[in-house]
C-alpha cells in the first residue's frame, strides 16, 4: 500500500523532492528513520495486529469529515469545500521566534522532503480510520523559524473566510477562526506531521487542503486543517474546543481509553469501513504510539490534563 502510494504520479513535482534534500540530508535521514519506525516498526510488539495498518477505503476518509466551517454534517464538507481557494495560499509564522515571515505555500513546503506515512487516526467521537498521509515533519518549519528560548507553545489557525465558508443553516456558537496548539516539545516530535496529501494525492479540500497538521497520538480535532498561521507563544494558547466546552475537551486531548468524554466512553472505538456487524475494538493509550511519545507525558497526570 505504502509503496504503491509513493509511486503515484499525479503529485506536483514540487512536493516530491528538492535540491535542499542534499543540504538537509541529515534531517532527511533522521525523519526517514522516524518514518520507518512508524511504517514498519509497529507491526511487531505490543499486541499490534498486522492487519491494523491497512488504510481505510479512501472514499470514507474523504466523505466523512468534521470541518464545521463547511457545515455540521459529516457529509457537508465534501459537498461544500470545493469553494475553498487553496492557491495562492499564505502561511504567517509569527510570535516568539527569530524569523517571523509570511510564506507562500510553495516556499513553506518546498525545503522539506515529503514522505508517506500511514497513521491511525482516532476521532474524539470514538471512530477511527487508518490514513496514508503525505507530508513532512512539523519540526522542519519550527526549526526554520528559530523559536525564541521563551517560546513554549505553538498555536495554529485555520483560514476563516465567510465568503468561501458561507454560513450553513445554523452557525454554531464557535469563535472562528478554528484554533489549535501544541506544546513545543510535542510539536518537535518526529511523528508530528504537516500533511499536504493523502492516499498518494494532494489533500482534498474537505480534508484540510492545502496544508494540515497530523498528530496521530491525539484526538482528531487537534490535527487542525487548512492552516494559515503558526504563532510561537510562552503560555498555553487558547484552542477552539477547549474554550468552547472546557469540561469536554482539554488542551492536550491525548487519546486515552481511561479518560472518558462526558458523552461517550473512550475505552473502545469503531474502525470505519468494517461493515455493520463489526465490533468496536479497544482503544490504545496514545493511540498506540506510547512507545514513541509516552516520554513527553512522563510526569503528568493525564486525567487532569486531558
Amino acid at each position: 500500500m505504502i509503496i504503491k502510494a509513493s509511486q503515484a504520479s499525479d503529485v506536483p513535482s514540487s512536493e516530491i523532492t528538492s535540491e535542499s534534500d542534499y543540504l538537509n540530508r541529515r534531517r532527511f535521514l533522521g525523519a526517514s528513520a522516524a518514518g520507518a519506525v512508524v511504517l514498519f516498526g509497529r507491526a511487531a510488539p505490543l499486541g499490534a495486529r498486522p492487519q491494523e495498518l491497512e488504510p481505510t477505503p479512501e472514499d470514507l476518509a474523504t466523505g466523512y469529515n468534521n470541518f464545521y466551517e463547511f457545515g455540521l454534517d459529516k457529509s457537508d464538507p465534501a459537498r461544500h469545500a470545493h469553494a475553498l481557494r487553496t492557491r495562492p495560499w499564505t502561511i504567517k509564522v509569527d510570535g516568539l521566534c527569530n524569523k517571523p515571515a509570511d510564506y507562500q505555500l510553495e516556499d513553506f513546503v518546498q525545503p522539506s522532503a515529503v514522505e508517506d506515512r500511514t497513521y491511525r487516526f482516532r476521532c474524539v467521537e470514538a471512530w477511527s480510520m487508518v490514513v496514508p498521509w503525505r507530508g513532512f515533519p512539523l519540526a522542519d518549519v519550527i526549526k526554520r523559524a528559530e523559536p525564541a528560548a521563551s517560546a513554549k507553545y505553538v498555536a495554529f489557525e485555520t483560514l476563516w473566510d465567510p465568503e468561501q465558508m458561507p454560513e450553513r443553516r445554523w452557525r454554531p456558537r464557535i469563535g472562528w477562526p478554528y484554533r489549535e496548539g501544541l506544546r513545543l516539545d510535542e510539536a518537535m516530535h518526529p511523528l508530528a506531521l504537516l500533511a499536504t496529501g493523502m492516499y498518494g494525492k494532494a489533500l482534498p479540500n474537505q480534508n484540510g487542503a492545502p496544508l494540515r497538521l497530523i498528530v496521530p497520538w491525539k484526538y482528531g480535532f487537534k490535527s487542525i486543517k487548512s492552516i494559515v498561521r503558526m504563532t510561537f507563544t510562552e503560555t498555553e494558547p487558547p484552542t477552539t474546543w477547549a474554550t468552547q466546552t472546557p469540561n469536554e475537551y482539554g488542551f492536550y486531548a491525548n487519546v486515552n481509553p481511561d479518560v472518558s468524554h462526558p458523552r461517550w466512553s473512550q475505552a473502545r472505538e469503531r474502525p470505519l469501513g468494517k461493515g455493520i456487524l463489526a465490533r468496536r475494538v479497544p482503544t490504545r493509550f496514545l493511540n498506540g504510539y506510547e512507545e514513541e511519545v509516552g516520554s513527553l507525558y512522563e510526569d503528568m497526570d493525564l486525567k487532569k490534563f486531558f
Binding site: 466523505g63 466523512y64 471512530w127 455493520i276
Partner: peptide, 13 residues
C-alpha cells in the same frame, strides 16, 4: 441502504 452499502462511512451511526 445496508444491503447496498449506501449508508455512508458510518452506517450504524
Amino acid at each position: 441502504g445496508v444491503a447496498r452499502g449506501a449508508l455512508g462511512a458510518n452506517p450504524i451511526e
